[in-house]
């Protein structure tokens, strides 16, 4: 479904990602793990087409994700949730939801849309009183769940989430895990990042361990936790948890 071909990324003098090749299969869930500043988020952003790599290409169904003119078509199919809840600051929450819906689903039925928006917000425990508020006046956790709600309203084929549980309180965490599980069950492809044990154990089909800009390990989560590699086992012990 998604293929990374010889991806490198450099920021100023520093090499963040170094010649990464990888293929993401459809209907599977991947979790990219790694230490602090290992390039997890950068790899996810490149895979999602948000930033162009310094070298190499990302192919979504055999087409370069950076191709001009395909943005709407590609991003209609790839949902993206940021680590910290991000919303356009000068729009209300309602307008924030309306913006991608209007842009990416221009021909859908308005009433159906409204019903789906309402349903998604309640599934992610977003109170309707937040709708006319500006992002700066609502809690960070709500911002993030609004992000999740938007991503699900758009019904993507691939969902990319940067550290799904970051910044969330317990009830919201449960809601997120529940929805991600449903998405997985319905046959969606997910690429997640983070070092959450629960995410890796409950949701992930394949763990990718990123270190020094390279993929050091890529296999099933069971093997990830029982690896004999000293560096990896040290990472699991020290970094993986909830």
């Amino acid at each position: 479904m998604l293929t990374l071909k010889n991806i490198s990324f450099r920021h100023k003098e520093q090499t963040v990602l170094d010649s990464i090749n990888y293929h993401f299969e459809p209907n599977k869930t991947y979790t990219i793990t790694g230490g602090l500043s290992s390039g997890k988020s950068t790899l996810l952003k490149i895979t999602g087409g948000l930033i162009p790599p310094t070298e190499g290409i990302v192919c979504f169904r055999e087409r370069d994700i950076q191709t001009k003119g395909l943005e709407r078509e590609i991003h209609r199919k790839i949902g993206y949730v940021f680590q910290e809840g991000v919303l356009i600051s000068n729009l209300s929450v309602e307008e924030n939801i309306g913006l991608p819906v209007k842009y990416l689903l221009p021909n859908s039925n308005r009433d159906e849309q409204r019903i789906r928006v309402k349903e998604m917000l309640s599934r992610f425990r977003v109170d309707s009183s937040y709708l006319d508020k500006r992002p700066c006046s609502i809690p960070a956790s709500i911002r993030k769940t609004v992000n999740f709600a938007i991503a699900f309203i758009l019904q993507p084929e691939v969902l990319m989430v940067d550290d799904p549980l970051f910044n969330l309180n317990k009830p919201e965490r449960e809601a997120v895990i529940r929805e991600l599980t449903n998405f997985k069950r319905s046959g969606g492809t997910m690429i997640l990042t983070g070092n959450s044990e629960r995410i890796i154990k409950d949701l992930t089909d394949e763990v990718i361990y990123l270190n020094e800009g390279k993929i050091q390990y890529s296999d099933k989560p069971e093997l990830f936790f029982t690896s004999t590699d000293s560096e990896l086992s040290q990472f699991v012990t020290e970094e993986i948890g909830d």
Binding site: K45, G48, G49, L50, I51, E71, R72, E73, I74, H75, R76, I78, Y80, F82, V86, L87, I88, L99, P100, Y103, L104
Partner: peptide, 8 residues
């Protein structure tokens, strides 16, 4: 980045 993630 958010706008770009919507393809906008």
């Amino acid at each position: 980045d958010l706008l770009q993630s919507y393809g906008i």
